[in-house]
Amino acid sequence: LYCGPFFSSAVMAGYALERFADDAAKTERLPQIADGSIRATLVLDDLNHPSQVGRLIAADQAGALTGSAPIVLDGCSAEVFFIVAREDSGLGLYALAAKAPGAEVSAQDSIDMTRKVARVTLQEAAGTRIGSVTPQSLSRFWDLTSVALAHEMIGGASRLLDETVEYTKGRYQFGRPIGSFQALKHRCADLLMNLEFAKAATQHAGFCLAASDQETIYPSMAKAMAADCFMEMARAAIQLRGGIGFTWENDTHLWFKRAKCDEVLLGAPYRHRARMMDILQETQDVA
């Protein structure tokens, strides 16, 4: 469980610059994010669905930003905010120093202690416009970050399964390892099967994104399947450990909390399945 700002800075802020920013901003900012000389985070006023972004934060013609984002990953440790804000003609991308006048950052409680979140409130904060955000580019950004998050969840589920299998081999009951009991062996086999299905979907989604810019259902499919898999693995890891799985002395509870937060980050599974249906319907209408 990595507690640093990799996903917020390298993934979310990096993809936002790559998809939305102008060439000058990319040239200046992307190398800084890549080498870690700055910590950036993306400020979105909604993390559930791309169609809902831009409702709470607005920019006037002078670039003054007003509004709030309830959940910002690593907002308290970021040095630079990249903010998607509503404009008269659509959405724009703005850069703002985290300690700029008019910007207030407050830490928020989260069940996941390994990934910090904050609330960002803006009151006529003077941002610098560095790009435009179209519905197509925002949807593509959502696909890219969802697949990146799905890969994280697959990695977490794999680690949980490996540690759980090792635990069942070393935990003895009635004079034999509990992993030798048929019920537990079948449970672990089912977990492995679900993991392989989700892993295949995630890898295919990444291949589709690398191969084409066309909108596809596979990123949302991967996010939904990986989230379900990670949560099921976390629940099973606690149950298969018995009483020790519920204690703070065992790290399994940290994995469970990360799984729960990742499940809803960028949209819960039901939202991504609904998004898949919307994309399929649009494809059929065009055909």
Rank of each mutant, 00 (worst) to 15 (best):
G75M: 09
R39G: 01
A64L: 15
D35T: 02
G92L: 09
G67P: 02
I38S: 03
S77H: 00
R39Y: 01
G63W: 06
D46T: 04
P101W: 09
E104F: 03
I83V: 14
V72P: 00
L91C: 09
D60G: 04
I38K: 08
A98Q: 09
L96N: 13
S37H: 09
I33W: 03
I71V: 14
A62Q: 15
V80Q: 09
A59T: 01
P101K: 14
S37C: 05
P70E: 14
G54W: 08
G54E: 10
R55L: 11
Y94H: 11
P50A: 13
D35P: 00
D35I: 01
E87N: 12
G90I: 10
S68F: 12
D46K: 11
V72L: 08
N48K: 12
D60C: 06
G102R: 12
A40N: 04
S37N: 10
L44E: 06
A98D: 09
A95Q: 15
L44P: 00
S68W: 06
A34C: 02
A58V: 04
G75R: 10
L65W: 04
F81V: 00
A97E: 15
I57N: 11
D35K: 10
P50G: 07
D60W: 05
H49D: 15
G102L: 12
I57W: 07
E79P: 00
S77I: 00
D60K: 08
R55D: 14
S51R: 15
T41P: 00
R39K: 13
I83A: 05
A78L: 04
G54N: 13
L42A: 03
R86C: 08
D45H: 08
D88N: 13
